[in-house]
Design a binder for these strands. Structure first.
Length: 553
RNA sequence: AGUCCGAUGGUGUAACGGUAGCACCACAGUUUUUGGUACUGUUUGUCUAGGUUCGAAUCCUGGUCGGACUACCA
């Protein structure tokens, strides 16, 4: 028997419902984004939850665009959202739009008016806010609250027909101006907006508010479990009130805590600022927590899904360590990426006793998931990492230092003989001798060395641009710091290395492909790459216990 | 001030009145032709005060702390 994973609280609710035969045991969820921006990692949690639940319980999950505010929504966003969901690996059962239901929702409003449960209010937004009261003070009734059903019906129709300017009138639910829950103090449910809608065009100048569209859309689609984030918890009584008054399918709303990640921000408003004010280059900038940014950075859908699964679903506020996401990314990439060699900060190594025409080594692509071998040409002159050589090294330095030996990955063991410096004292060449009998694969030297380093043959090296990314902010929670969140942006979050050396096998690398640069990290080919200039993004570095060790001292 | 949520190691998340477990992080070690991976181990926790009970992280009461709510946004 497989070990049973404990259920999250929503799964418990669903299993109870199924056991009790609620809705005949049917499970129908939905992912309801507003098409006014790009999806981020927080949305991924919701997507994994909604689609995951449907899958787990043999149900269905709809993609529904909550497009009730024509002034902020665009088709461009619809397309990017669909692309991101597909990339994450989910398929929706139906693609719906709240705007598909505008006629039905309008009729719902008429029903409410006829029941005496809604009225047309001529007050201004300011007047409505002023009579709303506050958390410790009851509101007061609008002077228009007592209008007759007939008058309300006529006025509402005229609103729809375009007789009034934006803001001249609204439709309000008639509930209770003294209700402790401010949302139930006669909420506005329809407002006039003479605006072009990305799907319904100019058909409407009257649009329902979220509270009068969301639950109604859920009900129309017969959503059984309507899952949203905690900030909507106060809306639930309203959600239920409308459904009850209308006598429509009783969808139920459940709330979970949204995802927060350290060293980034998640609010659409803040992300928009980062883009508009040029702190990042675009929505898909690899520093962004957007799904498009993460995709471009090289985070895999598998890793993101694993991450969402690992963080769990609960009702308490949370702040997830970025290191957990990075762990998930490394865990997946470790299994699937081919290893290659790239020298980011080069210094030349000369093997003084190597006079061969030039060996070509067959090096294993992936020790975790065997994926064949590739040819890597060798030579007398190699590029190696500058920090793999140290003239005066500490005891635990297992790399090149005069008199010490290392293995050149997949090739020979070399012994460091010394170095050559320029007038300023910078090392410009590292001199070594190699042991011919230590050839990789049939080493008869009997030697074991502690260090293995990567290398690129100078004669065969290709060049590439590398973009190293780091956390976007310097502090864990920029939103909770004093002052402007932008003051905490990490200026070193992007570090461009215009010309690094990569092994010739990478000539075939294509945008989107991921590799492990041995001993360095995971890198993927950026979409900015061209035929003559290949660009790599650092997805995430490898764990570096040596760096940690040196930092300690 | 009111209403509603919530509170378990540094971070997340389990335990559904009966041994506080798992993952990440951190630290130590083993293996290693990546100072990677894998494996092993260590440190660290039930907000608080009462109550119910043979027994409480769990149930009850009070307190404390954190969050959400006063848009013609979603």
């Amino acid at each position: 028997m497989a070990e049973e994973k404990s259920l999250n609280f929503i799964e418990e609710i669903i299993e109870n419902d199924i056991a009790e035969g609620v809705n005949g045991g049917r499970v129908q969820t939905r992912f309801p984004p507003e098409p006014n921006g790009y999806l981020h990692i927080g949305h991924a949690k919701s997507i994994c939850l909604n689609f995951g639940l449907a899958k787990k319980y043999n149900g269905k999950c709809n993609l529904r665009f909550d497009d009730t505010n024509p002034t902020t929504e665009e088709t461009e966003y619809v397309e990017s959202i669909k692309k991101d969901i597909e990339w994450l690996g989910f398929k929706w059962d139906n693609e719906f739009y709240a705007s598909d239901y505008f006629d039905k929702i309008y009729q719902f409003a008429v029903t409410l008016i006829k029941k005496g449960c809604a009225y047309v209010d001529d007050s201004t937004a300011e007047e409505i806010a002023a009579t709303k009261g506050s958390t410790f003070q009851a509101g007061s009734d609008s002077p228009y609250r007592g209008r007759s059903i007939e008058e309300n019906l006529r006025l509402f129709e005229e609103m729809r027909d375009g007789k009034y300017e934006d803001g001249a009138k609204v439709l309000r639910a008639k509930i209770d101006m003294a209700h402790p829950n401010l949302l139930l103090r006669d909420p506005v449910i329809y407002r006039i907006k003479h605006a072009h809608h990305h799907r319904t065009g100019d058909k409407w100048c009257l649009y329902p508010m979220y509270d009068f569209a969301h639950g109604e859309s859920d009900s129309i689609e017969e959503i059984t479990h309507s899952i949203c984030t905690l900030e909507f918890i106060h809306h639930r009584p309203l959600y239920n009130w409308f459904i009850e008054q209308l006598g429509i399918f009783p969808s139920k709303q459940y709330e979970f805590a949204r995802l927060n990640l350290t060293y980034t921000v998640m609010s659409k408003r803040k992300l928009l600022k980062l883009v508009n004010e040029g702190y990042v280059t675009s929505w898909d900038d690899p520093r962004m927590p957007t799904l498009s940014g993460m995709r471009r950075r090289g985070y895999s859908p598998e890793a993101i899904r694993k991450f969402c699964d690992t963080v769990g679903v609960a009702k308490r506020e949370n702040m997830i360590d970025l290191s957990l996401l990075e762990f998930c990314v490394r865990e997946h990439l470790n299994k699937v990426t081919d290893r290659v060699m790239a020298v980011l900060d080069p210094v030349k190594m000369i093997i003084t006793n190597y006079e061969e025409a030039g060996d070509v080594f067959e090096i294993e692509n992936n020790p975790e998931t065997p994926n064949g071998y590739r040819s890597v040409p060798f030579g007398k002159e190699l590029w190696i990492e500058r920090d793999d050589f140290m003239e005066d090294a500490p005891k635990k330095f297992f790399r090149l230092t005069p008199g010490n030996m290392v293995r050149l990955k997949g090739a020979y063991i070399v012994k460091c003989e010394g170095c050559k410096k320029d007038e300023a004292g910078n090392v410009i060449e590292v001199h070594c001798t190699y042991l011919p009998e230590s050839k990789s694969g049939n080493d008869t030297s009997g030697l074991t060395v502690k260090g293995t380093i990567h290398w690129i043959s100078v004669q065969h090296a290709l060049t590439a641009e590398v973009r190293n990314y780091d956390r976007l902010f310097k502090v864990e929670d920029p939103s909770s710091e004093e002052g402007d969140f932008k003051d905490y942006i990490n200026p070193d979050a992007l570090q461009v290395m215009p010309s690094v050396y990569i092994e010739p096998s990478l000539a075939k690398a294509r945008p989107g492909e991921s590799y492990q640069f041995m001993r360095k990290g995971y890198y993927c080919v950026d979409t900015d790459s061209t035929a003559d200039k290949i660009i790599f993004n650092r997805t995430v570095g490898l764990k570096d216990t040596w760096a940690k060790e040196t930092k300690k001292n």
